[in-house]
Simulated assay, not measured.
Amino acid sequence: MDPHLLRTFVAVTRLGSFSAAARELGYTQSAVSQHIAALEADLRAPLLHRRPVGPTEAGARLLDHAAPILLRLDAARADVARVLGEPPGRLTVGASPLAAPDRLATALARLRRSLPGLEVTLRVAGRAATVAAVAAGDLTLGLVDGVAAPSDPLRLADPGPLTTVAVAEETLVVLLPPGHPLGGRAGLRLGDLVSARWIDAPETAAPLADLRAATESDGVRAGIRYEGTDTATLLALVAGGHGLAVLPASAARESAGVVAVAVLAPRLVHRTELVHGHLAGPAATALADALRHGT
């Protein structure tokens, strides 16, 4: 299976258009049509409905495999490129919104003092996007956060030979709007809140899927979904009564408009992990060491 054809197929299905895929990929529309026809001939199955454009049942099956296959190919290319190291004087770092921002800021400050001419780019994105960008070589290293049992690793996608190491663990809190009847409690059990209205904010708050797994309940339902990465917006949604959210305790200190109550059970923590491939160059190595040791 030619990966170039597979990339074209993924682009067409994502955009729902042959012409839009051609513009994005820099091909002619005729070339995109030829790519899809060649892939269908190779697999001996129709992969796309043409009017409207969308995957057939066989195409949907292929899509399940396409993203991991392409990411592993990108990861292999990036792993080879890492032998050459970062361009001199440049470092690109990624982080999910609540991935130990204080620790990252301190580590970057120390790094820039030791290498004053260093050009640093910091990209804030979602958890999965950050890991994928590290694997593909778009980021030198990244910090990602999530919810886990104490000392357990995060459940991350397997994009290739990446190193992950914990750099921080923090108490979790339930964020409630002002005046909430449970706001005066010393702590709360998530199992007692399964019927509450929640905010589904997968890139900032604890994902609702993790809360369902932790409470062994399908009752954790979203009242509203927030797909951004801005923590202040999420806190404003909680303060406005749109639903509850579980965040690290440090995030609650950013706003006086919410009430934070510690999560007593189940035993969960907010965990931040450093993710990187083979490190090459003094800047990447020094930053990774600073993040690991908190110095």
Score class of each variant (00 low, 15 high):
Ala20Asp: 10
Ala288Cys: 05
Asp200Arg: 07
Gln29Thr: 15
Pro52Ile: 10
Gly89Cys: 07
Ser19Gly: 11
Ser30Leu: 12
Leu279Trp: 08
Gly142Asn: 03
Pro266Ile: 01
His278Gly: 13
Leu208Arg: 05
Arg51Pro: 02
Leu287Pro: 00
Leu6Gln: 01
Ala75Thr: 10
Val144Ile: 09
Ala166Thr: 15
Asp289Phe: 13
Leu115Lys: 04
Pro46Cys: 11
Arg50Lys: 13
Gly240Ile: 05
Leu6Asp: 00
Gly54Ser: 12
Leu70Phe: 06
Thr233His: 12
Leu268Ser: 00
Arg221Asn: 10
Thr130Trp: 03
Thr171Pro: 12
Thr13Asp: 13
Arg292Ser: 04
Glu24Phe: 09
Gly89Phe: 06
Ala168Gln: 09
Leu208Ile: 05
Gly160Tyr: 00
Glu169Ala: 12
Gly243Phe: 00
Thr140Val: 12
Gly160Cys: 04
Gly223Trp: 00
Asp192Phe: 11
Ser195Glu: 15
Leu15Asn: 01
His278Glu: 14
Leu182Phe: 10
Val259Ala: 05
Thr92Leu: 11
Ala100Ser: 13
Arg82Asp: 04
Ser114Met: 12
Asp102Ala: 15
Ala129Ile: 08
Leu39Thr: 00
Ala157Pro: 12
Thr130Asp: 06
Leu182Arg: 13
Arg44Lys: 14
Leu63Ser: 02
Ala66Phe: 01
Pro3Val: 09
Leu47Thr: 01
Pro248Glu: 08
Ser195Ile: 09
Gly142Leu: 01
Thr229Tyr: 07
Pro97Asn: 07
Pro101Leu: 04
Arg292Phe: 01
Arg155Glu: 15
Leu115Asp: 08
Ala41Val: 07
Glu170Arg: 11
Ala262Val: 14
Ile36Met: 06
Ile199Thr: 01
Leu122Glu: 10
Gly126Trp: 03
Leu143Ser: 01
Leu244Asn: 06
Leu104Val: 09
Ala45Lys: 09
Leu70Thr: 08
Ala45Gln: 12
Asp42Tyr: 14
Leu104Ile: 08
Ala22Thr: 06
Gly137Leu: 08
Val194Pro: 05
Leu247Phe: 07
Val263Asp: 00
Leu84Cys: 11
Arg267Thr: 15
Leu208Asn: 07
Trp198His: 05
Ala107Phe: 06
Val167Met: 03
Ser33Pro: 03
Thr285Lys: 13
Gly179Lys: 06
Ala99Pro: 07
Arg197Ser: 13
Ala286Thr: 14
Asp218Glu: 13
Ser217Cys: 05
Leu176His: 06
Leu98Arg: 05
Arg127Val: 14
Asp138Phe: 07
Leu84Trp: 13
Ala99Cys: 07
Ala252Leu: 02
Ala11Met: 07
Gln29Ile: 10
Ala22Ser: 06
Arg112Glu: 14
Pro55Val: 09
Asp200Phe: 02
Thr285Ile: 15
His270Gly: 02
Leu234Cys: 03
Gly187Arg: 13
Leu274Asp: 03
Leu211Cys: 10
Leu122Tyr: 08
Arg61Ala: 14
Ile199Phe: 02
Leu91Gly: 00
Leu111Trp: 09
Ala22His: 03
Leu154Gln: 04
Val93Cys: 05
Val124Cys: 08
Asp74Pro: 08
Ala236Glu: 14
Arg221Trp: 05
Ala186Phe: 12
Leu175Cys: 10
